[in-house]
Design a protein around this nucleic acid. Structure first.
Lengths: 226, 226
DNA sequence: TTTTTCCTTTACTTGTTCTTTACAGAACGA
DNA sequence: TCGTTCTGTAAAGAACAAGTAAAGGAAAAA
């Protein structure tokens, strides 16, 4: 199956990941810094790189830049928080996806498979998401609704992205919080609701006057596919 | 059904949990420290481990680390609320979920089921259930009857789901109570009847004027397959 | 620096949902 | 038939989740 290269200075985490991913039938190589990663890649080109952002020495961004100079292998960034996501995923650096730490291993697996599935050769722009008259271009960090540009903040963008990825499907509050806010949902944390509120205000109701994003009380939200 | 392993030094709590979960048709094994848990797992691999964090001797973190060295059975951590939650759930330690103590049975049950479901078959999209002109889409959290959307509360939704899963077959009152309300049916507990009543009102009678959900006195209910 | 933008928190409001209580009618057994 | 038990449902209220205005705060931009 596919060759993965993990780059992370946390050796314990690497070992854990390696064991888990090997159990999933991947061939896994591990390095603990950017230099070693680049060397390893010269020896053998992996199908996908899992790259930590926070590393001593050459950090994830710099490593990614160097990786990009020599090829277009798909890269999945492991980030500490929700911030900097645009720079990571955007064209500027050209990562294929990111996953905020801490993440669930099943989630990681899903993303790895998604990346491998969609490109093989990578280098393609992440796919445009579209549903209910809303069009989201991940690379351009831009959203249009019926052709009109909608200005969103990063958090709103991530929220909408997650809802679009699962258009028509329920997305739990916790999942949204983790993806957009980079943390698990705490009791009494109303930040998610505020972002949701702002997002809805910017999107406005659909043709029938209903909100585009449906609330499922006690469970989460979902974007109507229409 | 599924095998659970409970690891907690509080024997009283263990006994309580065991009784409850066995009532829910789980096969439950109990150990009171990490060593015993690992031994037990070597004898027989459970489908899910409920692991207390605070234990004398090897604590929950260490036990989890050891569990992870030998496989990736799902683990639900029982923890005091507060810090470390990220470390617990994140990949660093690799728990699948956590539940702050004290917790109620219903919540525990929901989380256990969620973990087992997601691990079971990578079932991203659960199948649409259909019978008697009623169509229930679990992912979209939506029910339609003859094409018309029927607005249901979560409890009503769970009741209907259970009836649809066993369409044409008797479902006991106790089973319904446990699935939808998260508790055994108590004497004089009329909540289930109220939800049934509301559900029936929302669904209305079928073409022949009969209720869609038939009562079997002293036993339970069943949804006519038609 | 100041300004601006964005995220989060607080506080309040609203509306929904679940449960309990109470009573009436139906089904059952004797 | 009569009394008992079970079920249906109306009504009330308790508990709770979600929407959002406004203010505080932090970080980026000017």
């Amino acid at each position: 199956m596919a060759d993965l290269l993990i780059v992370d200075d946390d050796r314990e985490l690497c070992a854990l990941l390696q064991r888990y991913l090997e159990g999933e039938q991947f061939a896994v190589t591990v390095t603990h810094d950017g230099e070693a990663a680049l060397q390893q890649m010269r020896r053998h080109a992996p199908d996908l790189v899992l790259l930590d952002v926070m590393m001593p020495g050459m950090d994830g961004f710099e490593t990614l830049r160097r990786i990009r100079q020599s090829g277009d292998v798909p890269v999945l960034m492991l980030t500490a928080r929700g911030e900097d996501i645009d720079r990571i995923v955007g064209l500027e650096l050209g990562a294929d996806d990111y996953l905020p730490k801490p993440f669930n291993h099943r989630e990681l697996l899903a993303r790895i498979r998604a990346i491998l599935r969609r490109g093989g050769a990578g280098s393609e722009e992440s796919p445009v998401l579209e549903a209910g008259g809303i069009r989201l271009q991940p690379g351009a960090q831009q959203v249009t609704q019926h052709g009109q540009v909608v200005e969103l903040t990063n958090t709103e963008f991530e929220l909408l992205r997650e809802l679009l990825v699962h258009a028509g499907q329920l997305v739990s509050r916790d999942a949204l919080s983790r993806v957009a806010l980079g943390r698990r949902l705490q009791p009494h944390d109303r930040a998610l609701d505020m972002h949701m509120s702002n997002l809805r205000r910017k999107l406005g109701p659909d043709a029938a006057g209903n909100p585009v994003i449906r609330t499922v009380r006690g469970r989460g939200f979902l974007l109507e596919k229409v």
